[in-house]
Amino acid sequence: MANQINVAKQDLSDFPKLPFGIRHNLMDNPLLSLDRLVALAASMPRDSIEYNSGKVAIDQNPETVPLVEMDPVEVVRRIREANAWLVLKRVERDPAYAALLKEVLDGFARDLGHADAAAAGFTSIEGFVFVSSPNATTPFHSDPEDNFFVQIHGEKFFHIIDNQDGAVVSDADLEFAPSAHRNLSYKPEFEARARVFSMDAGDGCFVPYQWPHWVRTGANYSVSMAITWKSTEVKRRNRLLFVNALLRKAGLPQPSPGRRPALDAVKIAAYTGLRAALEPLRRVQGLRTQHGK
Protein backbone atom coordinates (compact mmCIF):
# COMPACT_ATOMS: atom_id res chain seq x y z
CA MET A 1 0.00 0.00 0.00
CA ALA A 2 1.34 3.44 -0.94
CA ASN A 3 2.25 5.76 1.90
CA GLN A 4 -0.26 8.50 2.70
CA ILE A 5 2.49 11.04 3.44
CA ASN A 6 5.78 11.78 1.71
CA VAL A 7 8.83 13.05 3.58
CA ALA A 8 12.13 14.10 2.00
CA LYS A 9 15.03 11.78 2.93
CA GLN A 10 17.11 14.63 4.33
CA ASP A 11 14.35 15.43 6.84
CA LEU A 12 14.28 11.85 8.11
CA SER A 13 17.84 12.26 9.40
CA ASP A 14 16.75 14.98 11.85
CA PHE A 15 13.49 13.36 12.91
CA PRO A 16 11.99 14.05 15.45
CA LYS A 17 14.13 17.04 16.46
CA LEU A 18 13.26 19.65 13.82
CA PRO A 19 10.14 20.71 11.90
CA PHE A 20 9.85 19.98 8.18
CA GLY A 21 7.31 20.13 5.38
CA ILE A 22 5.49 17.10 3.98
CA ARG A 23 3.16 16.20 1.13
CA HIS A 24 0.18 13.88 1.54
CA ASN A 25 -2.74 12.38 -0.40
CA LEU A 26 -5.44 12.69 2.27
CA MET A 27 -7.28 15.69 0.79
CA ASP A 28 -9.69 13.49 -1.19
CA ASN A 29 -10.38 11.03 1.62
CA PRO A 30 -14.17 10.91 2.17
CA LEU A 31 -13.67 10.77 5.96
CA LEU A 32 -12.37 14.34 5.78
CA SER A 33 -15.07 15.83 3.57
CA LEU A 34 -17.14 18.59 5.14
CA ASP A 35 -20.36 16.53 4.92
CA ARG A 36 -18.70 13.60 6.72
CA LEU A 37 -17.33 15.94 9.40
CA VAL A 38 -20.83 17.32 9.99
CA ALA A 39 -21.94 13.74 10.69
CA LEU A 40 -18.90 13.10 12.87
CA ALA A 41 -19.59 16.22 14.94
CA ALA A 42 -23.19 15.10 15.42
CA SER A 43 -22.01 11.72 16.73
CA MET A 44 -19.44 13.05 19.22
CA PRO A 45 -20.02 13.97 22.86
CA ARG A 46 -20.01 17.74 23.31
CA ASP A 47 -17.00 17.65 25.64
CA SER A 48 -14.98 16.33 22.68
CA ILE A 49 -15.69 19.44 20.62
CA GLU A 50 -14.08 22.79 21.33
CA TYR A 51 -15.06 25.90 19.41
CA ASN A 52 -15.02 29.66 19.62
CA SER A 53 -14.77 32.72 17.42
CA GLY A 54 -11.94 32.65 14.91
CA LYS A 55 -11.38 36.37 15.50
CA VAL A 56 -8.82 36.06 18.27
CA ALA A 57 -5.36 37.49 18.90
CA ILE A 58 -2.14 35.52 18.56
CA ASP A 59 -1.59 36.15 22.28
CA GLN A 60 -5.28 35.80 23.18
CA ASN A 61 -6.15 35.88 26.88
CA PRO A 62 -7.98 32.55 27.41
CA GLU A 63 -10.39 34.23 29.83
CA THR A 64 -11.66 36.62 27.16
CA VAL A 65 -11.96 34.34 24.12
CA PRO A 66 -15.08 35.42 22.17
CA LEU A 67 -17.59 32.61 21.80
CA VAL A 68 -19.91 31.55 18.99
CA GLU A 69 -23.60 31.24 19.88
CA MET A 70 -24.27 28.25 17.66
CA ASP A 71 -24.51 24.48 17.98
CA PRO A 72 -21.18 22.87 17.00
CA VAL A 73 -22.79 20.78 14.28
CA GLU A 74 -24.18 23.97 12.79
CA VAL A 75 -20.73 25.58 13.09
CA VAL A 76 -19.26 22.85 10.88
CA ARG A 77 -22.15 23.02 8.45
CA ARG A 78 -21.91 26.82 8.15
CA ILE A 79 -18.14 27.17 8.54
CA ARG A 80 -17.83 29.36 5.45
CA GLU A 81 -19.65 32.24 7.17
CA ALA A 82 -19.59 31.25 10.89
CA ASN A 83 -16.44 33.25 11.75
CA ALA A 84 -15.46 30.32 13.94
CA TRP A 85 -12.65 27.96 14.89
CA LEU A 86 -13.57 24.39 15.88
CA VAL A 87 -11.72 21.19 16.73
CA LEU A 88 -13.10 17.64 16.87
CA LYS A 89 -10.95 15.91 19.50
CA ARG A 90 -9.87 12.29 19.67
CA VAL A 91 -11.48 11.25 16.39
CA GLU A 92 -9.68 7.89 16.66
CA ARG A 93 -12.51 6.77 18.94
CA ASP A 94 -14.40 6.27 15.67
CA PRO A 95 -12.96 3.03 14.18
CA ALA A 96 -12.81 4.43 10.64
CA TYR A 97 -10.65 7.35 11.73
CA ALA A 98 -8.52 5.10 13.95
CA ALA A 99 -7.75 2.95 10.91
CA LEU A 100 -6.83 6.02 8.87
CA LEU A 101 -4.42 7.34 11.51
CA LYS A 102 -2.78 3.94 11.84
CA GLU A 103 -2.40 3.63 8.08
CA VAL A 104 -0.66 7.02 7.90
CA LEU A 105 1.78 6.30 10.73
CA ASP A 106 2.43 2.71 9.64
CA GLY A 107 3.54 4.05 6.26
CA PHE A 108 5.82 6.65 7.81
CA ALA A 109 7.27 4.05 10.18
CA ARG A 110 8.22 1.94 7.18
CA ASP A 111 10.09 4.94 5.76
CA LEU A 112 12.08 4.95 9.01
CA GLY A 113 12.90 1.25 8.60
CA HIS A 114 10.32 -0.18 11.03
CA ALA A 115 7.63 -2.75 10.43
CA ASP A 116 4.81 -0.45 11.57
CA ALA A 117 3.93 2.40 13.93
CA ALA A 118 4.06 0.21 17.03
CA ALA A 119 7.56 -1.01 16.16
CA ALA A 120 8.65 2.62 15.69
CA GLY A 121 7.45 3.47 19.21
CA PHE A 122 4.50 5.59 18.09
CA THR A 123 2.00 5.11 20.91
CA SER A 124 -1.08 6.99 22.17
CA ILE A 125 -2.04 7.78 18.56
CA GLU A 126 -4.75 10.45 18.43
CA GLY A 127 -6.43 12.57 15.79
CA PHE A 128 -7.77 16.12 15.94
CA VAL A 129 -9.72 17.62 13.04
CA PHE A 130 -9.80 21.42 12.76
CA VAL A 131 -12.54 23.23 10.87
CA SER A 132 -11.97 26.99 10.60
CA SER A 133 -13.64 29.91 8.90
CA PRO A 134 -11.68 32.22 6.58
CA ASN A 135 -9.13 34.49 8.27
CA ALA A 136 -9.27 32.65 11.61
CA THR A 137 -6.40 32.47 14.12
CA THR A 138 -5.21 29.77 16.49
CA PRO A 139 -3.28 31.49 19.33
CA PHE A 140 0.36 30.82 20.25
CA HIS A 141 0.74 27.54 22.16
CA SER A 142 2.67 24.27 22.33
CA ASP A 143 1.56 20.63 22.38
CA PRO A 144 2.72 17.69 24.51
CA GLU A 145 3.22 15.26 21.61
CA ASP A 146 4.70 14.93 18.13
CA ASN A 147 2.40 15.84 15.28
CA PHE A 148 1.93 15.46 11.54
CA PHE A 149 -0.34 18.35 10.58
CA VAL A 150 -2.05 17.89 7.22
CA GLN A 151 -4.01 20.49 5.25
CA ILE A 152 -7.16 19.09 3.64
CA HIS A 153 -9.01 22.14 2.29
CA GLY A 154 -8.22 25.83 2.03
CA GLU A 155 -5.03 27.65 2.89
CA LYS A 156 -3.25 27.75 6.24
CA PHE A 157 -0.12 29.51 7.48
CA PHE A 158 1.67 27.61 10.25
CA HIS A 159 4.26 29.60 12.24
CA ILE A 160 6.61 27.30 14.21
CA ILE A 161 8.99 29.13 16.56
CA ASP A 162 12.45 27.80 17.43
CA ASN A 163 12.68 27.64 21.23
CA GLN A 164 15.51 25.12 21.54
CA ASP A 165 17.49 27.53 23.74
CA GLY A 166 14.48 28.39 25.92
CA ALA A 167 14.67 32.09 25.04
CA VAL A 168 11.08 32.31 23.77
CA VAL A 169 9.13 30.12 26.22
CA SER A 170 10.45 29.38 29.72
CA ASP A 171 10.64 25.99 31.38
CA ALA A 172 7.88 27.05 33.77
CA ASP A 173 5.52 27.91 30.90
CA LEU A 174 6.09 24.53 29.27
CA GLU A 175 5.20 22.62 32.43
CA PHE A 176 1.76 21.11 32.84
CA ALA A 177 0.23 23.03 35.71
CA PRO A 178 -3.15 21.36 36.38
CA SER A 179 -5.13 24.59 35.94
CA ALA A 180 -2.97 26.23 33.25
CA HIS A 181 -4.34 27.06 29.80
CA ARG A 182 -2.35 25.98 26.77
CA ASN A 183 -1.99 29.53 25.34
CA LEU A 184 1.46 31.10 25.70
CA SER A 185 2.69 34.68 25.86
CA TYR A 186 3.67 35.97 22.41
CA LYS A 187 5.80 38.85 21.13
CA PRO A 188 6.12 39.92 17.46
CA GLU A 189 9.91 39.62 17.66
CA PHE A 190 9.48 35.84 17.96
CA GLU A 191 8.88 35.82 14.19
CA ALA A 192 12.64 36.23 13.65
CA ARG A 193 12.87 32.62 14.89
CA ALA A 194 9.86 31.34 12.92
CA ARG A 195 9.64 28.84 10.14
CA VAL A 196 6.38 29.53 8.32
CA PHE A 197 4.72 26.74 6.36
CA SER A 198 2.28 28.09 3.74
CA MET A 199 -0.01 25.14 3.16
CA ASP A 200 -2.68 24.35 0.60
CA ALA A 201 -4.60 21.09 0.27
CA GLY A 202 -2.03 18.28 0.02
CA ASP A 203 0.60 20.11 2.10
CA GLY A 204 1.52 19.57 5.72
CA CYS A 205 4.27 19.82 8.28
CA PHE A 206 5.84 17.95 11.14
CA VAL A 207 5.53 19.80 14.46
CA PRO A 208 8.04 18.48 17.01
CA TYR A 209 7.15 17.97 20.64
CA GLN A 210 6.62 21.27 22.49
CA TRP A 211 7.76 23.55 19.66
CA PRO A 212 5.54 26.63 20.15
CA HIS A 213 3.45 27.74 17.20
CA TRP A 214 0.46 29.75 16.01
CA VAL A 215 -1.72 29.35 12.94
CA ARG A 216 -3.95 31.41 10.67
CA THR A 217 -6.21 30.52 7.77
CA GLY A 218 -6.47 32.19 4.38
CA ALA A 219 -9.42 33.57 2.44
CA ASN A 220 -11.28 30.23 2.23
CA TYR A 221 -12.59 27.94 4.96
CA SER A 222 -10.05 25.43 6.20
CA VAL A 223 -10.11 21.74 7.12
CA SER A 224 -6.95 20.28 8.68
CA MET A 225 -6.01 17.28 10.77
CA ALA A 226 -3.37 16.75 13.43
CA ILE A 227 -2.10 13.16 13.64
CA THR A 228 -0.36 12.94 17.01
CA TRP A 229 1.57 10.32 18.93
CA LYS A 230 3.84 9.99 21.95
CA SER A 231 7.16 8.16 22.08
CA THR A 232 8.50 6.60 25.28
CA GLU A 233 10.76 9.62 25.77
CA VAL A 234 7.89 12.08 25.28
CA LYS A 235 5.77 10.23 27.84
CA ARG A 236 8.66 10.28 30.30
CA ARG A 237 9.22 13.99 29.81
CA ASN A 238 5.51 14.77 30.18
CA ARG A 239 5.45 12.99 33.54
CA LEU A 240 8.48 14.95 34.66
CA LEU A 241 6.98 18.28 33.56
CA PHE A 242 3.76 17.49 35.40
CA VAL A 243 5.64 16.86 38.65
CA ASN A 244 7.75 19.98 38.13
CA ALA A 245 4.57 22.03 37.72
CA LEU A 246 3.16 20.71 40.99
CA LEU A 247 6.39 21.43 42.85
CA ARG A 248 6.68 24.88 41.32
CA LYS A 249 3.10 25.65 42.35
CA ALA A 250 4.13 24.71 45.90
CA GLY A 251 6.88 27.33 45.73
CA LEU A 252 9.71 24.99 44.75
CA PRO A 253 11.23 26.02 41.37
CA GLN A 254 12.70 23.07 39.51
CA PRO A 255 15.78 22.58 37.29
CA SER A 256 15.22 22.00 33.58
CA PRO A 257 14.66 18.38 32.51
CA GLY A 258 18.01 16.66 32.00
CA ARG A 259 20.00 19.00 34.26
CA ARG A 260 19.81 16.56 37.21
CA PRO A 261 19.05 13.09 35.80
CA ALA A 262 18.96 11.36 39.19
CA LEU A 263 16.40 13.84 40.52
CA ASP A 264 14.40 13.47 37.30
CA ALA A 265 14.24 9.71 37.88
CA VAL A 266 12.97 10.20 41.44
CA LYS A 267 10.21 12.53 40.23
CA ILE A 268 9.09 10.12 37.52
CA ALA A 269 8.99 7.27 40.04
CA ALA A 270 6.89 9.46 42.34
CA TYR A 271 4.52 10.26 39.49
CA THR A 272 4.16 6.56 38.67
CA GLY A 273 3.45 5.69 42.30
CA LEU A 274 0.90 8.46 42.72
CA ARG A 275 -0.90 7.47 39.53
CA ALA A 276 -1.07 3.84 40.67
CA ALA A 277 -2.55 4.93 44.01
CA LEU A 278 -5.19 7.13 42.40
CA GLU A 279 -6.27 4.74 39.63
CA PRO A 280 -8.60 2.60 41.83
CA LEU A 281 -10.32 5.79 43.03
CA ARG A 282 -10.78 6.93 39.43
CA ARG A 283 -12.34 3.60 38.50
CA VAL A 284 -14.78 3.79 41.42
CA GLN A 285 -15.71 7.35 40.49
CA GLY A 286 -16.22 6.25 36.90
CA LEU A 287 -18.63 3.50 37.98
CA ARG A 288 -20.56 5.93 40.16
CA THR A 289 -20.86 8.33 37.24
CA GLN A 290 -22.05 5.59 34.89
CA HIS A 291 -24.78 4.58 37.34
CA GLY A 292 -25.82 8.13 38.16
CA LYS A 293 -24.76 7.99 41.78
Rank of each mutant, 00 (worst) to 15 (best):
L31Q: 11
F140Q: 03
L67W: 08
H114G: 04
D106P: 09
D59R: 01
K293Y: 13
Q151D: 04
P62F: 00
V75W: 04
G251L: 04
K249I: 07
V207G: 02
A177V: 06
A136Q: 05
A8S: 10
F149G: 03
N6P: 00
P95A: 02
S142I: 02
D11F: 15
D106H: 10
A265C: 00
D106N: 15
N163L: 03
V223Q: 03
A167Y: 06
F148K: 05
I22Q: 07
T64C: 02
W214P: 01
G154N: 10
V65I: 15
K102D: 13
A245H: 10
K156C: 03
L26Q: 02
Q60Y: 06
A98V: 05
D11R: 01
Q151L: 11
L252W: 14
A172D: 14
S224V: 05
K55V: 04
Q10Y: 12
D14R: 15
S124Y: 01
S198Y: 09
E279N: 12
R193F: 04
N61H: 06
A270T: 12
D71C: 06
L31N: 08
V73R: 03
I161Q: 13
V38L: 08
N61V: 03
A172G: 05
G258K: 09
F242K: 13
L247G: 07
G202P: 01
E103P: 06
S179R: 13
L246V: 09
T64K: 10
K9Y: 09
A276W: 10
Q285A: 14
F149V: 08
T217R: 01
I125W: 00
W229Q: 00
P208H: 04
E233P: 00
P72S: 07
R90K: 11
N61S: 13
I49A: 08
P30T: 08
A250V: 06
S224C: 10
A226E: 02
E69T: 15
G202D: 08
T138M: 07
E50G: 14
P208S: 04
A136W: 06
R216C: 10
G286H: 11
S133K: 06
R236D: 00
S142Y: 13
H159T: 12
P45E: 07
H213V: 02
E92Y: 02
K249E: 14
G251P: 07
V76E: 05
E69I: 12
P188F: 00
Y97P: 12
A180V: 05
P95G: 03
E92N: 11
T217D: 01
I227N: 07
Y97V: 10
S33Y: 09
L32D: 08
S132M: 15
Q164K: 12
S48R: 13
P280G: 08
P255N: 07
N183M: 11
I152M: 10
F128H: 14
D14Y: 14
Q164M: 11
Q60K: 02
C205D: 05
L101D: 01
T272Y: 07
A98R: 12
L37T: 10
